[in-house]
Each structure stands twice: as structure tokens, then as C-alpha cells.
Amino acid sequence: MTTLFTIDRGVVVALIIDSLRDLYEQNGVTTDSEPDEGTYLIGRRALLDSLGLVTLIVDLEQKIEEAFGVALTLANERAMSQKNSPFLTVGSLADYICALIDEQRNV
């Protein structure tokens, strides 16, 4: 039997939100509400532009390596070809990251 998420998903969500806050601040983005799991990262409801998303991904890869000691490539071909993009919201990205870390650790 395998456990779906062996890492603390809450830590991953916190990392994403932390990076997102930094990005908003750097780019002068103002928002009415604090980012949470439902915050959109791409699409019309997102506050990030395409470069912002690139920066978020790079920042997260570095933070994940520091926090979990795992070097991930988030924007790989698989992610880009998935019908429902893992980059849609903070929550979907957290699920995706947890799955990738699990996958890499179980190899």
C-alpha cells in the first residue's frame, strides 16, 4: 500500500503563497484578498503575467530544493501537455509538486 502524499502538503502550499506574495510585491500587484489555495496562477483571473509565472516556477524550484532536498523541473513537457494545467491554481500546483516529489523519492 502506498500513501499518496508522504510530504506535508501544507508546507508546499505555504511555499507557493510565500513566493506569490514576493512576486506581487516586486511587481506592484495589489489584491483585495490574501492568496490562498484557490488563487489563480494562469488565465484571465490570474494576477501574474507570463514572465511572473516563469519567475514563480524558478523561485519554487529553488525553494523546494532547499526545503526537501529534491531538484524538480516543474515546467516539464508532461506538465505542459496535461489537459488540466497543474499551474491553474495554488492548490493544483501544490498537488502537482507533492506528486512529483513523491515520484522522485520513490524511484
Binding site: Q26, T55, V58, D59, E61, Q62
Partner: peptide, 8 residues
């Protein structure tokens, strides 16, 4: 560039 972008 991944490292440099941290400090812009």
C-alpha cells in the same frame, strides 16, 4: 539567470 534573477 535563475540565480541572478533573485536580485534582479
Amino acid at each position: 539567470a535563475r540565480l541572478m534573477q533573485r536580485r534582479r
